[in-house]
Design a protein around this nucleic acid. Structure first.
Lengths: 205, 205
DNA sequence: ACCTGAACACCGTTCAAGT
DNA sequence: ACCTGAACACCGTTCAAGT
């Protein structure tokens, strides 16, 4: 997967960053439907330049998603080394919820639809590995029931995320719902149906 | 809200249904990006006819969403009369998960973005009222903790829904995640932060 | 009243000309 | 190498002509 095809020329690199920043801002403010023309204008470049750097509008979006996802993975990795193994997972989710960093872009990137994109695929599996580590540590510490898997936790969190996006007026309820997630995966005598979905279940064949 | 503007002519009504059926099928199979041209062709009408019945592509989608949402509300209403007040809620969610009826269209309709559409707004509040009734009954029966609200349950369920859509390979995990939702809202000694978001929090001002 | 397809508008994408 | 804007393609939407 060759992603480092020798450094760009100074002006090109500058334009690339300007485009990413402009796009991130426009997408956050006006949704994914903003035109390439507006983004190019705000970045101070011509329309054509966008497509010189990103083969398609979707690739531009993907680049932002990768940024956010990498940021989140880094955040989680730090917590993996925390002494309190039982709380690190919840601390992580709590920080994700509180972060301005990740608008809708981040978790939209966890859909299978996007998996076609190589860079997203890489960033995603990195993120999942970190989350998996946090879940395992929490289980080892007895803070999370042993019969749930990463995907179970991700599902619950995606729900919180999606809901917060759908009902911005009730957005302050996100922390509250984290309590519900905590309750859901707390140690329990009631077994869950079926077996925990593995990471492999989330990946295209 | 005048929605019954006198019956359509026979051929017009037939075309309307054909369009709704064709659109529902195409959307399910190929996503919301399918062109109006394809839909019109499959329905056996001209492109222009689509816009005679639905002012915009979004309105066509909305009509389908309303169909599904009404169907789900009806289903829930029947369960409201069930003798087992404690299980009716879960029975409802279980049936929703199992239903082929509601592709992604249904819960996409619960976003605030769509609330602008009057018909969706009506169908949505109908659905929410039913869900609210089921939650209340379950709480009265002691099957659900008293400090959660409809929106909490909806959030959890949206998560399940969204996840099932994002990870179709792990779709059989939906029933499993229902167990997690059950665990989340089971009676508990640990109080939740904040207060339960009300229906008003979910509506535009 | 309703149906139709040609015409229009808009926006993502390409490309020839310029630096 | 890279930048640019005019040109192209595609698709949602409109509308004049037809039944």
């Amino acid at each position: 997967m060759g992603e480092q095809s020798r450094p760009l020329r100074a002006d090109a690199e500058r334009n690339r960053r300007a485009l990413l920043d402009a796009a991130a801002e426009m997408f956050r403010e006006h949704g994914l439907e903003v035109g390439i023309a507006e983004i190019a204008q705000r970045a101070g470049v011509g329309r054509g330049t966008v497509f010189r750097r990103f083969p398609t509008k979707e690739h531009l979006i993907a680049a932002i998603v990768v940024d956010r996802m990498t940021w989140a993975a880094d955040l989680g990795r730090q917590l993996l080394d925390a002494p309190e193994g039982g709380e690190a997972l919840f601390e992580f989710l709590e920080q994700l919820v509180g972060a301005q960093q990740l608008d809708r872009a981040l978790f939209d990137g966890l859909d299978e639809e996007w998996l076609a994109n190589d860079e997203i695929r890489a960033a995603q599996s990195e993120f999942m590995a970190v989350l998996d580590g946090l879940v395992s540590r929490a289980q080892a510490a007895g803070a999370v029931r042993s019969d749930v898997g990463v995907l179970d936790v991700l599902m619950l969190f995606k729900g919180l995320w999606e809901a917060a996006r759908s009902f911005p007026h009730a957005a302050d309820a996100a922390h509250r719902q984290l309590d519900l997630i905590r309750a859901a995966i707390a140690p329990s005598a009631q077994p869950l149906r079926g077996r925990a979905p593995t990471l492999a279940d989330a990946v295209l064949d």
